[in-house]
Design a protein around this nucleic acid. Structure first.
Ligand SMILES: [Mn+2]
Ligand SMILES: [Mn+2]
Ligand SMILES: [Mn+2]
Ligand SMILES: [Mn+2]
Lengths: 219, 219
DNA sequence: TTATTTTGTTTTACTTCTCTAACTTTATAC
DNA sequence: GTATAAAGTTAGAGAAGTAAAACAAAATAA
């Protein structure tokens, strides 16, 4: 049984691996706000438990078992976020910090029940995939809105940044998952976009924002 | 901010005070399955935080502030149990261990939302009162079923023991809160009772069981 | 009332998780 | 290709929470 602290290291390492490929001690240190020597010793400990491949001065890698255990924590996190939004009436900007705690609850039954009540959802309120009970994750092919061109019709499927500020920004513009968006124009100078969706006929979004919005093309 | 460990000490001390009046280091030690020297040092620590009155060799007492903080953890525990039963479909025998963990979640909003979704319940699935947001608890006047006599008509309002085994025993006999029970007879030899309720016309309950069932008299 | 048992405390020590300081290795700049 | 900077490790230490051993006080029994 992994401790809460070990679980947070596993999860952070898993997420960083997906975000940036190669993960160094320094990356994990910054992500967790824990000093490098502490991270080094925890990596050795997790290596001893067979969850991490550790070699001095080399990038950090989860073992297959480590990936599974990390994915199962992420599963609990994302099921929780979905439950909070769908069954308890929270906004998608309010759920991360609560899920960060509830993901450490030890009760298979509790999460199985959540899953069932939610109808076995495939993704969380931010569009991230929910790993299955075996820790397998299936990633959908998304495109960044910033990679679209004028005239493209797309559907908003996920957000990359899930900070409260960013999600509130999207709330203020009535941007939510599932929405159909038409790219009206792209400004070559700063790559900002003018888009049309729902009742908004001409909303301007900066490149910084568009990079964080994941979409699929509407046939 | 109290740690999870401190919270469990406060809660145990609060509960023991109610159950048995005077609480000694040894009682708390047994309740928490933690050795006496550890309890002594935690009591000194909590005394330092103004939550416990500690004097060597004297019974342990919570301060007023300690009582409030303990009651607020118990509030979270009981709201959680109620939520699990009412909103997630758990049985009353399944919820204690999950609540034991969720009671340590730090999020006022999370518990406020639970409370609201439940319609501000006054008691948990076992009939125990839910403290209010200020840590005030109001105890109803209950009577033990074992103190009733033949011919009494009562309503089952709470259970004292909330172990899974006891609650399953009650489930097997279709005994649940709110049920109206008629005391048919009391056996003088072992103080067992024959009772009548719902579709059960002659169920025999041992004194040990009757002592743990709290009732109010049906007018 | 004295002996014995139980309860409680003190001291020492272990585990987990964290840090700072000092040093080493690797990467980057010139 | 050295010099400098950045990243990583080692060593030492501290806080939180725990227990074992030794001792002291209080309760109980004889
Ligand atoms: Mn999240
Ligand atoms: Mn977490
Ligand atoms: Mn309970
Ligand atoms: Mn608890």
């Amino acid at each position: 049984m992994n401790s809460l602290v070990e679980e947070n290291y596993l999860k952070a390492l898993f997420n960083l691996s997906i975000e940036s490929g190669q993960v160094n001690v320094n990356d994990l240190s910054q992500r967790l706000d824990i000093k490098m020597p502490t991270v080094t010793s925890m990596m050795k400990k997790l290596a001893g438990k067979g969850l991490v491949h550790y070699e001095s001065y080399k990038p950090l890698r989860l073992t297959e078992q480590g990936k599974i255990e990390a994915a199962l924590i992420i599963r609990k996190h994302r099921l929780t976020e979905m439950f909070l939004v769908e069954k308890m009436g929270f906004g998608w900007e309010q759920v991360h910090d609560i899920a960060e705690q509830i993901e450490h609850i030890h009760s298979d039954l509790f999460f199985a029940k959540m899953d069932e009540l939610l109808g076995f959802p495939k993704s969380d309120p931010h569009g991230s995939p929910i790993p299955d009970r075996n820790g397998n994750v299936t990633w959908k092919e998304f495109k960044k809105l910033s990679d679209c061109k004028a005239g493209d019709r797309v559907r908003l499927e996920a957000v990359i940044n899930t900070s409260e500020e960013f999600l509130k920004f999207l709330n203020n513009r009535a941007l939510s998952l599932g929405l159909e968006v038409l790219v009206v124009s792209v400004e070559p100078f700063d790559r900002s976009m003018v888009v049309k969706y729902a009742k908004r006929t001409a909303e301007t979004l900066s490149h910084t924002v568009c990079e964080r919005l994941l979409v699929v093309e509407k046939a």
